[in-house]
């Protein structure tokens, strides 16, 4: 096989991958039209991950790059996971054990009844 033909094949492969990416994009846009939340989540974020991996592997050439570049990037994302899950129990809980977020929770009434709160939020025994 001549040099040029080999490169021509490369170009053709890039275009094929681009085609797959565009099809995936179409699915992710069409997904929410079914109006089923689970499917929306899968088509939106599942496909985003597939697309991202494809771009990484074929366009950024991670498939032929040294393995530890993969590890480097995956560890980066994993650290953001640590950040998310370390903060989530805290930030996601607008109301604490001894106070409530009265900005979001319009029904909140100031109360000193600690025992009631403990039952409500299940944190203190």
């Amino acid at each position: 096989m001549s040099q040029d033909a080999a490169h021509g094949n490369h170009d053709a492969r890039y275009i094929k991958i681009w085609g797959i990416l565009v099809v995936l994009l179409a699915i992710s846009v069409a997904g929410p039209m079914l109006e089923i939340q689970v499917i929306t989540l899968i088509t939106a974020f599942g496909i985003a991950i597939v697309k991202a991996l494809m771009v990484c592997a074929y366009f950024m050439h991670l498939n032929v790059e040294k393995r530890y570049i993969w590890y480097m990037l995956i560890i980066s994302v994993a650290f953001m996971g640590i950040f998310y899950f370390g903060s989530a129990p805290d930030v996601m809980q607008g109301s604490g054990t001894q106070w409530k977020d009265c900005v979001l929770d319009k029904s909140c009434v100031p109360t000193n009844d600690m025992a009631k709160d403990s039952v409500n939020y299940g944190i203190l025994r």
């Binding site: 088509t43 939106a44 985003a48 771009v55």
Partner: peptide
């Protein structure tokens, strides 16, 4: 090119986060 693909990648995630969901 590698940088540009990364910019593309970020958008791939921003799109469902801000537009689809």
């Amino acid at each position: 090119g590698i940088y540009w693909h990364f910019v593309d990648l970020v958008w791939i995630f921003l799109f469902p986060l801000l537009y689809i969901a």
